[in-house]
Design a binder for these strands. Structure first.
Lengths: 212, 212, 212, 212
DNA sequence: GATGAATGAGCGTTCATTCAT
DNA sequence: TATGAATGAACGCTCATTCAT
């Protein structure tokens, strides 16, 4: 699972991982070429298969490895002391976009993973992914201040509405950015717009004295 | 654009289209094998390329053809006289799930199209898709009764919240169904749950005398 | 040998022959595509094979047909009353270049035939070609005035020297024209240069009182 | 340019090159089959494309490689101290026929190259060929004794006449040999005949005291 | 006469993987 | 560790030809 690779000269290690990351992100699992990977990593054909017994293992290793990398930074940098759910989720969005700007290739890869169509690899991904999601989800909404919601609120479902809305908004903005080829660093406008949605939902779901 | 195919013996026509549909849905554009398609359609290699000058044309033809098939049924069966947005969107969800049960392979294909990563084919899809989306979107929210919303409501954004919520819910249910291998025809439970969300949003965004 | 074709509507006849001529000239025998031929002739696949039982027969028919066309014009227009060998051969060169300007596609085809590499077709061509050459050769030097040559001249070999020289010169000029993309109609310069070679050979092989 | 191939087991190397040489010579560039080449070389499909990235590169490599082989032997064996142009050109003819007898397959290939009609490959050949021709041509007539020609001789054109004559004669003999399936090693007869032509030209172009 | 649907072998090329060195 | 020679099945696509209509 951890592969022999990690005992290797770190610089070469990184060359291999980055080469693979880019190739898979660009072409998807099946169409990625191990030939291209070794060429752009500057290693021999044999060596790649010395470290990973086959293409699939390489792919899954990449996924686990970079999921962990992102997870680590994510949980280190997200402020879990913030108890207001909107602030927490706004912080999450900001953090996410900051991470995207910091590691664009990793996000490209992760995006491509989530859209992977190869049957060979999909089943192995699902387990890992749902596992990871469950863990994140519970942590994400841990210790939220529920007192702010109107009395009688269906908390669980309200949180879902909030989450889906912000997700919907995010993906809309991401798509807009992609369409306009806008850089990922200029999100000010988007965050102001997000604030508008957040206020609308606060007014709808929070006790009225809070939103005054 | 319409391909020579349509002038052919309809039974063979369908065999070819269905074979291609399944192969593309399962493996994606690049990895789908024309070899497999002809084998499962029971025709010769040459014949496929007699009808479609290449793989790409076949793929795009399938997309346009089945998009039209779905569109037609969709606009025929959706009730555009219903002026309440929640009813309209609920009807939409119901219709969508009915269509999914009726044409599961087409939906699988359409899903795979929307996740297609092949650069070769994406650009040609985008035009068609955005065109289609614009048209659908405007028609979908045409003639909605806006009087029901509270005064001072930010209509455009509220509609977005409603839409994103119902989309989020739908995809959650779809995933749940896929995970449990539940058939697509038993959605009663899901619709009851959807009703709950709808009522929550009615309470949040409609004038209070309406939701009484 | 004469093919059913000749009993056909002459306009369509010509369309077919020209389409085939161009395709074969451009791509050579094996690589020429009967598909392209029928497409550019505006006829159906089946019809071509109704007239010619296969590609080879079409090719050989074209060769014989157009060889005859050229031959006819050639022997009609060349002045066989001219008894001076240099004048006769100069006339021949002029006539040849005039024919090339008149029927460039036919010459392209004939050139491609002479360079054909397909074993399938070469043997059938050789017979026809050598036959044709023998006939032409003897006619070409018929009734030449041999009195002009110096006494004791080895006539046969001298004629060969003259012929090879003029052939060498012609092909040099042709290549030059091709390299510069010069049109085929402006050969004045070349003919003046040819005259220089002719005078050199007259001085070398004719009785000295003739060249004074 | 030099291809990975040359670092390989020489015996296998030669098998591949010879197989390719024969196939291309026989069928021309487009119609030569890489399938046939690997089959007759006794290697796998993949290996050929491991050494040459595509058919074209293989073809051009063959051309450059064997052109060099011939060139080397040619310039090593031709006597450039001989200052009489007829002797030099006679030596050239003899050497050429000796090389043809020594490497018949290479000559077949080179002949087929010079008649190649594939547009894909012609442009890449032209550069190399004209380069090579220019170099050879100038070297070939270097240091010729011009004193032997009659005074007032147009040297440049006279040399052309000589060259074209000998070329015409050579190709006539070659064709005769091919028609009779005569081996390439018995050229005595032909050389005697060549001598006749040479004497005729000496008498025509050299000072009369030389030919006495 | 005329059509075009239908065939299946063949094309050049790429592929992940193995293994002797 | 590290190399790269070697494999052969699979890829999308084209081909000349046949034949029922």
């Amino acid at each position: 699972m951890t592969s022999k690779l990690l005992s290797l000269n770190p610089e070469k290690q990184e060359r291999i991982l980055n080469a693979a990351l880019k190739e898979f992100a660009q072409k998807g699992y099946e169409n990625a070429s191990t030939n291209e990977i070794v060429k752009s990593a500057g290693i021999s054909k044999g060596l790649l298969f010395h470290y990973f017994k086959n293409k699939k293992e390489l792919y899954l290793f990449l996924y686990n490895h970079f999921a962990e990398v992102l997870s680590e930074e994510f949980f280190q940098e997200l402020d879990f002391t913030e108890r207001d759910i909107f602030e927490r989720l706004k912080n999450l969005m900001i953090l996410k976009s900051r991470l995207m700007a910091r590691h664009p290739e990793i996000f490209d890869f992760m995006m491509s993973v989530s859209m992977e169509s190869s049957a060979d690899v999909k089943e192995n991904l699902n387990n890992t992914t749902t596992e990871l999601m469950h863990h994140s989800y519970s942590k994400l909404f841990d210790n939220i201040d529920l007192e702010k919601f109107r009395e009688g609120t269906d908390i669980q479902r309200t949180i879902n509405i909030i989450l889906w809305t912000l997700q919907g908004f995010s993906s809309q903005e991401l798509e807009k950015a992609k369409r306009l080829n806008k850089g990922l660093d200029d999100f000010d406008e988007a965050f102001q717009e997000a604030e508008v949605y957040i206020n609308m939902m606060k007014k709808a779901f929070y006790k009225s004295e809070i939103t005054k």
